[in-house]
Design a protein around this nucleic acid. Sequence first.
DNA 1: GCCTATTTGTTCGTATGTATC
DNA 2: AGATACATACGAACAAATAGG
Lengths: 240, 240
Amino acid sequence: MVSVGDGVARWRRVADEIRSAITDGTIVEMLPPEVDLAQRFGVNRHTVRRAKAALADDGLLRAERGRGTFVNAVPKRLVYSVGTRTRFSENMLRQSLEPSGRLIRSEQVAADRDKAELLKTKIGAPLHRLEKLSVADGMPLSRSICYFSVERFPAIIESYAETGSITQALRMCGVHDYRRGETRLTAERASVRDIELLNCAADAIMLISSALDIDLDGKPIQAIRTKFLADRMELVFGGS
Amino acid sequence: MVSVGDGVARWRRVADEIRSAITDGTIVEMLPPEVDLAQRFGVNRHTVRRAKAALADDGLLRAERGRGTFVNAVPKRLVYSVGTRTRFSENMLRQSLEPSGRLIRSEQVAADRDKAELLKTKIGAPLHRLEKLSVADGMPLSRSICYFSVERFPAIIESYAETGSITQALRMCGVHDYRRGETRLTAERASVRDIELLNCAADAIMLISSALDIDLDGKPIQAIRTKFLADRMELVFGGS
DNA sequence: GCCTATTTGTTCGTATGTATC
DNA sequence: AGATACATACGAACAAATAGG
């Protein structure tokens, strides 16, 4: 066990290791006794206790005096299927969840080099920049920033604000179907703004997807950058 | 800026925010002065300095007294293209990087329920469990755990140890082509073992891919779980 | 050269959090 | 439950290098 002066407390490290062991099924029902854990991680028993307290706080554990520590029901990650036809609403409904979107902020910006290339507009062309929050069953799951050509979709913001769904907003703008182009994926620690918008833990991890949606003729529709809460989501590509 | 008693030091958070700003292009050439950063993050200047020291240690920054702090050449994230034909070596060579694989550990295990289902073997059937490290230009990028049916690929371990490439090892076992089935993605904090094997920051983030490779007849070849260093990699699906 | 503003580098002290025994 | 050592965080300085007029 390492961790001295690297900015991450040992108890936090231990808590994360235990959490992983629980979510990936290594620890199923009951936690090993504190002394065993302390030895395995090479830390003091107090440190293990601190870690367990943090996990119990999150509702993952339940300690019973004299009996041991039990693992509570683990909330499975929601599955988001990314195919050529990717729709947030459909993905959530399939899992019996009530989807909704909330408009955080919208503005017009000028296309920079990257966005102009993606959306095939001129550099400096006006774009709608739409920042939204996606929620399922009242739980914030992700936050996205979408860019649309103002010229092509003048009224998309109003339509989205009305319906709370990009798919429906696009339909109102005459786009009845579209598909997913390329998707780029990486991950980062949640920023301060992520934490306040998504109402998540301070050390949450965001799965970041940058994608381009195109219509059936291959013309670009929107460039989207979405930050998913990695704790609550799993993205699936290909297969089925 | 928050963070008190949550197990992650403030300087570490500040360092991460600055690192993000650098990698996503918000900060280009020069860092704002320490007092400005301190105010923006709501911390003491010492805390900013500690964060900068950590980043300078990683070679991202270069501070010059009286002049300011400069951003070194930004190491762009390497792109890993995940298509139906996904090969680590080809992906790296395309970016003029010298790929290599290192065998960490191999053993035989019995198939549990999940793996048996994926690999279409009986529960309890013997599997090769192959743990490896993938490196490009001397920099560790990811670590994988692969499962192969022992019955179907008796000598895969030796072949991999010899060649350092799964593709080549499979060829020696009579599989000349294979493709990627489903890929499931999520992200987690690096475990202690990740940190020591990949030689990365204490609070690094791992992009986790769980996938199944199948041969051209649709028969399963290997189940792979790969943990990519999110700082150094970007996964691309679809498009091109 | 001189002065000044800016920016990084350093040194005190003090309080709190972390980790062990 | 204390006692101890070390890491973290803040505050208030001051020193040293740089840039501009």
